[in-house]
Computed example of a mutant assay.
Amino acid sequence: MGTVPANTPKPPYYAVIFTSLRTEGDDGYGEMAERMVALASQQPGFLGVESAREGVGITVSYWQSLEAIAAWKANLEHREAQKLGRERWYSAFRVRICKVEREYGL
């Protein structure tokens, strides 16, 4: 889905952390997840994405600004995916938006 670790710029920037529990079966989820990553990567302000799934799914997307995050949330195709997620794909989820103030690593 996304490269790990994402190649992010010098902080500050923002992270949207999406933590989820899936329902049984795919029911179109895999295709939609790939489409959302492709679509998000075309949005102004998108910086990267990282994702892992083993039991609990965690996807972290990185953005230049809160305005870029709000524009992505409002994207019509993304809104349809959100609706399907609530109806079909997730038994529970949380979205957390954080400001990244410091970053370091190898």
Rank of each mutant, 00 (worst) to 15 (best):
G57I: 05
T3N: 04
A81P: 08
E34Q: 15
K73A: 02
L66R: 12
E80F: 03
S91W: 14
Q82L: 13
V95K: 11
G57H: 07
A6N: 03
A40I: 01
P12K: 00
A81V: 10
V56T: 08
R86K: 14
V4A: 03
E101Y: 14
L47C: 04
Y13R: 04
P9R: 10
N75G: 06
G45I: 02
R79Q: 15
E50R: 11
F93L: 02
R102E: 09
V60W: 05
T19A: 08
V100C: 08
Q42Y: 02
L106D: 06
T3K: 10
I97N: 15
H78W: 11
S65W: 10
S61G: 06
K73H: 03
E103H: 13
S20F: 09
I69E: 13
N75D: 15
F93G: 04
L47R: 06
F93W: 10
S65L: 06
Y90F: 15
L21W: 13
A68T: 09
S41A: 14
G2I: 01
K83G: 09
N75W: 08
V100I: 12
E24G: 11
P5A: 01
M1N: 03
E103K: 04
A71D: 13
Y13Q: 11
V100P: 05
D27G: 11
A92I: 11
P9L: 05
G105I: 00
H78K: 11
M32A: 13
R102L: 13
R22K: 13
A6Q: 03
A6G: 02
E50A: 04
E103Y: 05
E87L: 13
D26M: 00
E50I: 03
M32W: 12
V37A: 06
Y62M: 00
C98F: 14
L106M: 07
S61P: 07
T3M: 01
L47Q: 03
I17K: 08
R79T: 14
F46A: 12
E24S: 12
S61H: 07
A15T: 07
A33N: 05
Y90R: 13
A81D: 04
E87A: 11
E103N: 07
R86Q: 15
A6H: 06
W72E: 04
W63L: 12
Y90N: 12
I97F: 12
E31K: 13
Q64I: 09
N7M: 01
G57K: 02
A52M: 11
